[in-house]
Each structure stands twice: as structure tokens, then as C-alpha cells.
Design a protein around this nucleic acid. Structure first.
Length: 263
DNA sequence: ATCTATTCCTGGCTGC
DNA sequence: TGCAGCCAGGAATAGA
């Protein structure tokens, strides 16, 4: 389940393989991942040069000398450099040096070409790693939703998914069902600090390899070894020893310590 | 305007 | 051993 740290890791590992490369050939299978016509898509890509890669929330942007190719990994998407195509390969780019593949078992990912930035990006909120405290506070102020639901909302903040929402809330010692708008300045400050610390530490570990996430060179991350609550239901809280609890919030499995994260 | 439920997808796990 | 049924969840969409 690639979230901000995994997508950032993919972009960093991909950049040396992709930046400055010329796209010789682009091929797409029939898949919900690719919604545009394969021939039209290929005609937009073939002959173009990849000038720069960028992460925006969980989106990977290939800035071309004309247009932008955006890739969202969904749940099981993989962008691989110089890999052999497999049964789940949905797209492939042949470059003037090397190749790029997009593999995706469950096909929740999306690949899209657009002349400018793709429309969906305009709806994304700021990046939690760079958002100012003032903006962060204003995003959550007056909201009646539960804090975990809001952390997952990409329009408010872009990049946090289910794993990191749980880990961030644990670090900030905030209950996932807490009313966001009622969090005081001290807790909001703690929440933003926790978000930055968790996400940056996860990036430094190459992300969390929970299901089948690997970077563009096929390497697993190791942050899953440092998870405090995600997937730890029944295990003792690393801070107080109470049993970690699992509930459902916003239709997502939600893990927290009932002692450290009081309602 | 907001928030919540549903839908898409399939490998892997559970339990009979 | 085999297999039906459930589970995981990012985000668009529909519904409250």
C-alpha cells in the first residue's frame, strides 16, 4: 500500500534511470489502470524526453518535454526499472537506455497522460512534510470529522494513507476518533510534528514493505519493522504495555493504544 | 457543504 | 486436501 514514503522512495530510486531519457516505445495492456486509448497514449509518449520526476502526494509525475505522465500506484502498483515483464505488467516504456515497467496485481493504480498537470492534482491538499503549522491548523480548524478520516482525505493533506495515519496518531498520542476541530493548539502541534517525524523516518528506511511494495530496483523497505501499532492488534503497546486495539474507522482497519490514545 | 457507504480488483488467508 | 468466502484499502462516486 504505497503512501507518501513509498512513493517518495520510488521516485528517488527511479530518477537515475529515467531523468533525461528518451521514450522510444510505449506499450499498454487492456486494464482499468490505463483508461486512455493505448494508441493515443503511446503517440503522446513516444519520442518525448523525460525531463524531471516529481512526487505530489501519492502521485508520481514524469515531466516530459511535452506533457506530463502521471502514475498512481494504487494498492499494488510497482514502477520497475530494467525488469522483465510478468503476468501483471500493465504498461512498459522502452527508453534510449533501459526500460520502465508498470506492474499492478489489483489494478487500483492509474496511468494518465495530460498536456499540463493532470486535473486530479489541483484537488490535492498540501504535503505534510512542507505544510506550515498555520496552514495545518487552518485545515483542521472547525472540522467536525474524526481526525483519522481527515488525515486520509487527500484534499486536506496529500500523501497519508492508512498505515501512516495510525502510526502518526499513535506517536501524537491522539485517539483516531477524536473530533479534529476540537483538538487544541498543543495537540495539533504534536500531530504535525509526529507526521513529519514518522514520514521522514519511513522515507529514510525506504518505506514499509507490508504487502508487495518494492522500489524501482526491486528493493523492500524496512519501516514495517518499526511499526508501533499498524497490524499489532493484541500485542503490547511499546510505550505502556496495554494491548493494541483494532477498530474500523472510515471503513479502514485502525490500530491504536487504548491507554496512550485516550478519547 | 460535509461526511459516510459503496464499488472496483485479486492474491492470500481462514475455516469447514 | 480443496475450496468457498472473506479480507486488505486508495480514491472516485453515489448517497445521506
Amino acid at each position: 500500500m504505497p503512501e507518501l514514503p513509498e512513493v517518495e522512495t520510488v521516485v528517488r530510486s527511479l530518477a537515475p534511470h529515467a531523468t533525461g531519457r528518451l521514450i522510444i516505445r510505449a506499450a499498454f495492456g487492456k486494464s482499468p489502470v490505463v483508461r486512455q486509448d493505448a494508441g493515443v497514449l503511446a503517440s503522446h509518449l513516444e519520442g518525448r524526453r523525460i525531463e524531471r520526476l516529481e512526487r505530489r502526494g501519492k502521485f508520481i509525475l514524469f515531466h516530459l518535454d511535452r506533457g506530463v505522465l502521471s502514475v498512481h500506484l494504487g494498492m499494488t502498483g510497482r514502477l520497475l526499472a530494467n525488469a522483465e515483464p510478468g503476468p501483471y505488467t500493465r504498461a512498459s516504456l522502452t527508453l534510449d537506455a533501459g526500460s520502465l515497467l508498470y506492474d499492478d496485481i489489483r489494478q487500483f493504480g492509474r496511468i494518465e497522460w495530460s498536456a499540463e498537470a493532470p486535473a486530479g492534482l489541483a484537488r490535492l491538499g498540501p504535503d505534510p512534510l512542507t505544510v506550515t503549522a498555520a496552514t495545518f491548523h487552518s485545515i483542521l480548524r472547525g472540522r467536525r470529522g474524526r481526525i483519522k478520516s481527515l488525515l486520509l482525505n487527500q484534499r486536506l493533506l496529500a500523501g497519508i494513507g492508512n498505515i501512516y495515519a495510525d502510526e502518526i496518531l499513535f506517536r501524537a498520542r491522539i485517539h483516531p476518533l477524536a473530533a479534529a476541530g476540537r483538538l487544541g493548539p498543543a495537540r495539533l502541534e504534536r500531530l504535525l510534528m509526529a507526521a513529519r517525524q514518522v514520514l521522514e523516518q519511513a522515507i529514510s528506511r525506504g518505506g514499509s514493505s507490508i504487502s508487495d511494495y518494492v522500489d524501482s530496483e526491486g528493493r523492500s523497505g524496512s519501516f514495517q519493522l518499526l511499526h508501533q501499532v499498524y497490524g499489532k492488534q493484541g500485542s503490547p503497546c511499546p510505550r505502556c504495555g496495554a494491548a493494541i486495539r483494532k477498530i474500523v474507522v472510515a471503513q479502514r482497519g485502525t490500530h491504536y493504544c487504548p491507554h496512550c490514545q485516550r478519547p
